[in-house]
C-alpha cells in the first residue's frame, strides 16, 4: 500500500504529508459539522418551547405563560417580558414555603381583572418543574387544568430535562 502511494506521489515524505493533511481535514470537517448540528438542535428546542408555550397559553386561555425550574431556570416562556426575573421572583416565593417543609403544589393570586396560577407540574430528576400562567378575568385557571395541559404539551421537553438531569447526576 505504502509502496503504491510512494510510487504515486514520488517519495515517502510527500505521502506522510498527504496523510496528515487528510487526517487534519477530516477532524476539522467533523468539528464544523458537530457545531452546526449542535446549534441547529439548540435553536430547534428553543423555538419549539416558545411555540409550545404559546399554544399551551392558548389552550388554557392565558395571556402569559412561564415554565421554570425550582432553581429559577426558564424552560419556556410566551408573551412575558423579563421571564428570567419573573421566574427568579416566583422561585423565591416558593422557596419561602419550602424552608418550612411545606411543599406548594398550587398557588393562585386573584387580582382585579387578572389572575395568576402557579402549579408544580412534575419532578424532573432532582429538580421541580413549575408553570405560571396569567389569565385575564376574575376566574383563575384551575391548577389541575394547567398542570395537565403543560404535562401534555411539554412531554418532550420534560423528557429531555429528565435525561439531562440523569446525565449530570
Amino acid at each position: 500500500m505504502l509502496e503504491a502511494l510512494t510510487a504515486f506521489f514520488g517519495n515517502t515524505i510527500t505521502v506522510l504529508f498527504v496523510i496528515q493533511f487528510v487526517t487534519l481535514g477530516l477532524a476539522l470537517f467533523t468539528l464544523v459539522m458537530w457545531q452546526l448540528r449542535y446549534k441547529e438542535k439548540v435553536v430547534y428546542v428553543k423555538d419549539l418551547a416558545e411555540v409550545e408555550a404559546s399554544e399551551t397559553a392558548e389552550d388554557v386561555g392565558a395571556a402569559m405563560m412561564l415554565i421554570f425550574t425550582d432553581q429559577g431556570r426558564v424552560v419556556a416562556a410566551a408573551n412575558i417580558q423579563e421571564a428570567e426575573a419573573a421566574s427568579a421572583l416566583l422561585r423565591e416565593s416558593i422557596r419561602n414555603l419550602d424552608e418550612l417543609g411545606l411543599e406548594a403544589t398550587a398557588i393562585q393570586v386573584k387580582g382585579r381583572g387578572t389572575s395568576l396560577t402557579i402549579v408544580h407540574v412534575a419532578n424532573v430528576g432532582e429538580r421541580r418543574l413549575y408553570a405560571a400562567a396569567v389569565r385575564p378575568g376574575m376566574k383563575p385557571i384551575p391548577p389541575d387544568v394547567l398542570r395537565r395541559t403543560v404535562t401534555e404539551r411539554f412531554s418532550d421537553v420534560i423528557g429531555a430535562e429528565a435525561k439531562e438531569a440523569e446525565g449530570s447526576a
Partner: peptide, 18 residues
C-alpha cells in the same frame, strides 16, 4: 410580581400545601 406584570391590586392568594 403582580404589580410588576400588571395584575392590578391583588384581592386574594390561595396556596395549596402538602
Amino acid at each position: 410580581i403582580s404589580e410588576h406584570y400588571g395584575l392590578g391590586k391583588v384581592s386574594r392568594f390561595d396556596v395549596d400545601l402538602v
